[in-house]
Computed example of a mutant assay.
Amino acid sequence: MSAVPAQDPRVVKALDRARELGEEGLQVAAYLGGDLIVDAWAGSADPQAGRQVDGSTLFNVFSVTKAITATALHILAERGLVDYRAPVCRYWPGFARNGKESITVRDVLSHRAGIPWMPEDVTPERQADWDWMIRAIEDMPPAFEPGRTNSYHALIWGWIVGEIARRADPEHRPVEVLIRQEIVEPLGISDLFLGLPESEDGRVARLIGGDPAPDASETYLRGMPRQVFPGSTIYNTDLARRTVNPGAGAIGNARAFARFFAMLAGHGELDGVRLLPADVVDGFTEPREDADVTDLYLGGIAHVSAFGYWLGGSSPTANPAVGPNPRILHHPGAGGSISWAELDTGLAVSICHNRMHEGPFEPSAHPFVPIAEAVRAIAAERLERN
């Protein structure tokens, strides 16, 4: 792995432009193969305290977390411990209650399980109680016919996938331990946490904005209830930082998330460490069933993979920084965080920030588009030299 690069003036200019377009504090990191080719930051981590972003600042990335959790499940599947076509209840018998017996692992991964809502009586304290969440999920009936409806599982997805993984794992490791031992440590990643230690609180960027509007729709709030909504009111709290939330709770820096996605961009391998076979990672680009049908939760076509990632696309729900190439694996997060892996070029990028915004944006107004353009220009120069 190469030394940490100096901040390229093109990236510095792009970060300045992002701040002109509304960002507060942000980081970007990019890998090309095993080389960290971009590592830059700008702005304020906490305007109230006067603390500036640096390379070690940690950020909430919300649903970018899902890509990591999905990968942990895929590692188990490659060991023959999980069958994507099997019903969830094969691994988790209590899940079969109230009409959920036919829901498959693949249905869950692709957001077609039909249970996109959080428990109605969830609170931050109950969300932090893994056993309470699992009991509540067991008791829930499907809102839609399982396996038939595209409806993004904004928050609940993490607990379902995390519990499948825990039960399928022969050691029954909690999902945060599984992720640490099977992904974070083997790849030599530092500064990626699922359940942040109190000792790291001083490095976390303070979230700004992102709470639901007063007139937010009932459907929107059933997937992300106000009392646990992924915005600044809830996620700036100590409890939210400690909570193991495998669908929206990861905290880390851009270097850490870019290094994880570099493994995907390397078709399952990074710096001689292989987590998944190359053909398996290539297969993650398979779209979910009925991919061209509107997602009822997101309100548009969502380019979701059958395996828990998002794919490049050009629909209104797609992020213009990622681009339309369907061979780009990525995941967006609430408020705009984004990380991606380009299977054709080997480029992996992570952009973290603390000013939460709502899309969609026109490409010319999206604060991350100038950053993506600068990073790709640097990567293209590297590829030409090689």
Rank of each mutant, 00 (worst) to 15 (best):
S151L: 03
S151F: 07
L155E: 06
I156E: 03
I156G: 02
W157A: 01
V161Q: 07
V161N: 12
G162Y: 03
I164H: 09
A165S: 13
R167Q: 13
A168P: 10
A168Q: 09
D169T: 12
P170E: 11
H172L: 09
H172F: 09
E176F: 04
V177F: 09
L178E: 07
R180I: 03
I189Q: 04
I189D: 02
P197E: 12
P197K: 10
E198I: 11
E198G: 14
R203I: 02
V204C: 05
V204L: 05
L207Q: 00
G210E: 00
D211H: 05
P212S: 00
A213S: 12
P214T: 01
D215K: 00
A216V: 01
E218N: 06
T219M: 10
L221D: 02
R222T: 03
P225Y: 01
R226H: 04
P230N: 06
P230L: 02
G231H: 08
T237R: 12
T237P: 09
D238L: 14
D238V: 15
R242C: 05
V244G: 07
P246Y: 04
P246A: 03
A248S: 12
I251E: 00
N253V: 04
A254Q: 05
R255M: 06
A256N: 08
A256C: 07
F257D: 09
R259T: 15
H267G: 13
H267F: 11
D271T: 08
G272M: 13
G272T: 11
R274L: 13
L275S: 15
L276H: 08
L276A: 14
L276N: 12
A278H: 14
